[in-house]
Computed example of a mutant assay.
Amino acid sequence: MAPGYPAGTSRARGEQFERRAEQFLLGQGLCLVARNYQCKLGEIDLVMRTGTTLVFVEVRYRRSNHYGGALASVTATKQQRLRRAALSYLQSQGLNESRQSCRFDLIACDGSHIDWIPNAF
C-alpha cells in the first residue's frame, strides 16, 4: 500500500504499479534516476538510465483491457504533456536535449499482465 493514501484509492493502486514497473525495469538492467518528477507542465512516473540514455517511463494501469486497455490510454495529448515534462526535467538537470540521448518507454499493466514498450513514442 502506498503511504498516505487509503488502500482502495486509484492513486494508491497507481503507486503500487509504479513500484512494480520500477522493480521490473531494474531487473532488466536499467538504473533508477528519479521517481514522480513533477513540474507545472506534467509528471513523469519514472526517470531511468540505460547506458548513456535517459529513459522517461510512463506507467499505465487498467483493471482490464476493455475500452482499449492501458496502451490506448496514452493519447497524443498525454504524449505531448510527457515530452514537455521531459524537457523541463532536462533543463532542471542542466542537460541539453540535443546532446542527451533520451527515449520514452511505456509500461502497460492490464490486470496482472505487464507489457514493456521501449521507445513507445
Rank of each mutant, 00 (worst) to 15 (best):
G68H: 03
M1Q: 11
K78D: 13
K78C: 09
R20Q: 15
P6R: 03
L25R: 05
Q80A: 15
S88D: 15
N65H: 11
I117H: 13
G14S: 03
S112F: 09
N36S: 15
C109H: 09
E18R: 09
Q100E: 10
V33S: 06
T50S: 14
A72E: 12
H113Y: 14
K78N: 10
A76V: 12
P6F: 02
R62N: 05
A12T: 05
V47E: 00
H66W: 11
A72C: 06
A120M: 07
T50A: 13
Q28D: 09
A34K: 15
L25Q: 02
C102H: 05
N119Q: 13
T53E: 15
A85K: 06
A12Q: 07
H66I: 12
S98L: 13
F24E: 14
S98C: 08
G8A: 09
I117N: 06
G69D: 08
G4Y: 03
E15N: 07
F56S: 01
A85N: 02
C109M: 11
W116P: 05
H66C: 08
A34V: 06
R49N: 02
A7W: 06
S92K: 13
S10C: 00
L26W: 07
A108C: 05
C109D: 00
S64P: 00
R103W: 01
Q38K: 12
L26G: 09
R35K: 15
G14V: 05
Y5M: 07
S112Q: 15
A120L: 01
T75N: 01
L25F: 05
R60I: 06
A70R: 01
R81W: 00
R11F: 10
A85H: 04
L30M: 12
Q23V: 06
Y61P: 04
R60A: 08
S98K: 14
R63W: 02
E15W: 08
Q93C: 08
F121T: 07
F24Y: 15
F56E: 07
G68M: 04
D115Y: 10
Q93K: 11
G29W: 09
L87I: 01
V57L: 02
D115L: 12
A85T: 04
R49D: 02
R84A: 13
W116Y: 13
R13F: 08
Q38W: 08
K78V: 15
V55H: 02
Y67H: 13
E18A: 10
N36W: 02
F24V: 06
Y89Q: 04
I44L: 14
G4W: 00
A120W: 14
G29I: 05
A86P: 06
G4M: 01
Q16P: 00
R81S: 13
I107K: 04
D110P: 09
C31R: 15
R49W: 03
G68Q: 07
D105K: 01
V47G: 00
Y37V: 10
Q79E: 13
S92I: 04
C102I: 14
I44T: 08
Y37N: 03
E15Q: 11
A72I: 04
G94V: 08
G111N: 02
Q91H: 13
L25C: 04
K40Q: 14
A85C: 10
G8E: 12
